[in-house]
Design a protein around this nucleic acid. Structure first.
Length: 665
DNA sequence: ATTCGGACTTAGTACCTTCGCA
DNA sequence: TGCGAAGGTACTAAGTCCGAAT
């Protein structure tokens, strides 16, 4: 596939480019306004709710919207579900090699594409597959209201195990019961991973029926510096008040970083720092350039060295403590299941580091206290306790949202949340739904494109194109396909590209490393398409050199081995005895082994070189339908671990479980 | 009709851990 | 067994979407 192809695509794509500095600046302006003008109102508005124990949101809107979304997919048949269930039985212990091959196999459908003038690949098979999918796959993401026999059984079993757990849709969980149940279960080994994707989904905007958690972990309190670490102003030692000292340490810790030299950063920092000073300090400290943080800076460097030099035992102790915190605060109970929380720690105070030329860089990000925190949980759960002597800002019970904890951050005035891990049901369902939406686009993308291409046929192509595209992205989309947004296009383009590339690049005769290289190349094509770039790692050149040295050494080794083989052969010819024959064999094997090693290294070098400025992570995690990768693994006998690490496997558990080798996006 | 803002998702990166090799 | 590199994770800024407010 040509580079042009990608460029075309990405232009049409969505217009959402991120590193456009002009845009940034404008945006910053906007925010500025927004907050000056509206923050007060917002605060007022909010205070209406403060300290109210209960706040039941009147949320018909959400409900209607979600209903709308889900009903799109209606038309699933029971047959469909049966098929689904069967799959699961077959593949429960997937290890890269499907236990049961389907005899009809995979019809290799992809013919090398000629990009059309719109830059998109249009598979000849497209038409056919559209129809098929309309018939079959359509129904995959819809609420499963009808309970199948098997799930019924399972449910019963679960009921016995967990005493009194109510199916989501029936009635409200009774107070307390569910909570204790959940905990009991959680403490036992979770023998079997919960397959939420086999269960029915909420259709009414409700995100959960029961939610219990222990609240956030606050940043550790500030520890004043030892008295021998001094701060100097204008060359003179000055003892800072604790408040001022803390903010000073934030700056001292960043001293090595370039942005502490930037005017904006220094200005913002100094302004905010002064706010934390006593009036005496304020009158003395008037010029940041006269401040000498170097002792502080040295002290922190020494500290981090000391941390590195800790003994194994000390390190272990810290690790254990972290683990304890994780176990205590890192999970919640949501609807009878223990789910991992993504970020249970409150962001610690520090200096704001915006990206690019952010006008607010250097501002003080203030410490979040319990009084800033809104807790969201079930009415009938055990509420998290604020630290002794403090109060939460509010405890609310809004089950139309997914967050557990929120607070308002002081730099932009935006809200920050504590939410669940990507492996959780609530995130997974959303992810799955996203890909289903993109697959729906696949079905009508030809029509949509034909339509807008028609509009382009006019003088002043460029301008019209742009105008139409913009109009299209901004206004039209929902009319063409409901739920269609720019993001859906992006997801669609990424996923379809991966699928095509995988089909084009993978050949079944290749060995595993070569296949993985193909996978990475396909992934890379997508990353380029989505413009996921990265700065080449600092150590790139060096590590590349190292690798090349290794390759050279290997080559030499290979040459030697070949020479030896040759002489062994000659020797065997003369001697004609068993011993020399054996020697030839073993030399042959050695050559083979070295050749393999060499190839592996070369593949690695290619891979790394091609990956220099491209970040694969984002597309892999956010835009590529994981079922495509899973299917590919199954089809070519690649262990899924080679493609997804542990975290990714957790996030994509649903896809790993449900996708077969013939899955088609 | 436009803007705002809450709730999410996506993205970049610093740091920590593990791996592979001499 | 120590070291650098690769891989993985945590953190948090920034973007998107969409309903509500203006």
């Amino acid at each position: 596939m040509s580079g042009d192809h990608f460029h075309n695509d990405s232009q049409i794509d969505s217009g959402s480019r991120h590193n456009d500095s002009h845009k940034h600046k404008d945006k910053y302006k906007d925010k500025e306004h927004k907050h000056k003008d509206h923050k007060k109102d917002k605060e007022r508005e909010k205070s209406k709710y403060s300290n109210s124990e209960h706040r039941d949101s009147s949320d018909k809107k959400h409900r209607d919207k979600d209903k709308e979304r889900l009903k799109l997919k209606d038309g699933s048949s029971d047959k469909q579900k049966d098929k689904h269930r069967e799959k699961k039985k077959e593949e429960r212990s997937f290890d890269g090699k499907p236990k049961k091959e389907k005899e009809n196999g995979f019809e290799s459908p992809f013919i090398k594409s000629e990009p059309e003038n719109d830059g998109f690949y249009h598979s000849p098979k497209h038409e056919k597959s559209l129809k098929r999918e309309r018939d079959d796959d359509d129904a995959e993401f819809k609420p499963k209201k009808i309970k199948t026999e098997e799930s019924e059984k399972k449910a019963k079993k679960r009921k016995q195990e967990e005493e009194d757990i109510k199916p989501k849709k029936k009635t409200k969980d009774k107070k307390g019961e569910a909570a204790t149940d959940g905990k009991k279960k959680a403490k036992k080994e979770p023998e079997e991973k919960w397959k939420w994707w086999e269960e029915e989904r909420y259709t009414d905007g409700v995100k959960w029926k029961f939610l219990e958690h222990k609240g956030p972990v606050f940043a550790p309190p500030y520890e004043p510096l030892p008295s021998n670490v001094k701060f100097y102003y204008d060359g003179k030692h000055m003892k800072l008040s604790p408040g001022a000292e803390e903010v000073a340490t934030f700056f001292a810790k960043m001293l090595d970083h370039e942005y502490t030299t930037k005017d904006v950063f220094r200005k913002n920092f100094f302004k905010d720092w002064r706010k934390e000073m006593t009036s005496e300090e304020k009158s003395k400290l008037t010029d940041l350039n006269k401040c000498d943080f170097s002792e502080m800076s040295e002290y922190f460097k020494a500290q981090s060295e000391a941390r590195k030099a800790m003994t194994k035992e000390e390190k272990l102790k810290i690790k254990e403590e972290n683990e304890r915190l994780l176990q205590e605060y890192g999970f919640c109970i949501m609807d009878n299941h223990k789910e991992r929380i993504a970020n249970f720690r409150i962001e610690p105070p520090g200096l704001f580091r915006g990206r690019g030329d952010h006008p607010k860089m250097g501002m003080l990000k203030r410490r979040i206290r319990p009084e800033d925190i809104i807790i969201n949980c079930s009415k009938d759960s055990k509420y998290p306790k604020p630290p002794p002597g403090t109060k939460w800002k509010e405890v609310r019970h809004d089950n139309k949202v997914t967050w557990l904890v929120s607070w308002t951050e002081n730099i932009q005035g935006s809200i920050k949340y504590i939410m669940l891990n990507p492996s959780s049901r609530i995130k997974g369902e959303k992810d799955w739904q996203k890909y289903e939406m993109a697959r729906r686009l696949k079905k009508c993308v030809d029509r949509i494109r034909a339509q807008y291409r028609e509009d382009w046929k006019s003088k002043e192509m460029r301008i019209r194109q742009r105008a139409v595209a913009l109009y299209f992205i901004d206004k039209h989309l929902q009319e063409l396909m409901d739920g269609l947004t720019a993001k859906v296009f992006r997801t669609y383009n990424a996923s379809i590209t991966l699928q095509q590339q995988l089909n084009e690049l993978t050949s079944s005769e290749d060995n595993v490393p070569a296949k993985i290289l193909s996978y990475n190349r396909a992934n890379r094509a997508v990353a380029i398409l989505c413009n996921h770039q990265r700065a080449p790692p600092k150590t790139f050149e060096k590590s590349m050199q190292n690798l090349q040295t290794k390759i050279d050494a290997k080559k030499e080794q290979l040459a030697d081995a070949k020479r030896e083989l040759k002489s062994a052969k000659a020797d065997a010819k003369v001697r004609r005895d068993e011993k020399s024959k054996k020697a030839v064999e073993s030399k042959k094997k050695a050559v083979q082994r070295i050749e393999e090693q060499l190839m592996k290294l070369e593949v690695q070098a290619t891979d790394r070189e091609e990956n220099k400025q491209i970040a694969l992570g984002t597309s892999k995690l956010n835009y590529l339908d994981p079922r495509i990768s899973v299917a590919w693994c199954k089809k070519f006998g690649i262990p899924i671990e080679k493609i997804y690490n542990k975290t990714q496997r957790e996030k994509f558990a649903w896809a790993i479980d449900m996708a077969e080798k013939d899955y088609e996006f």
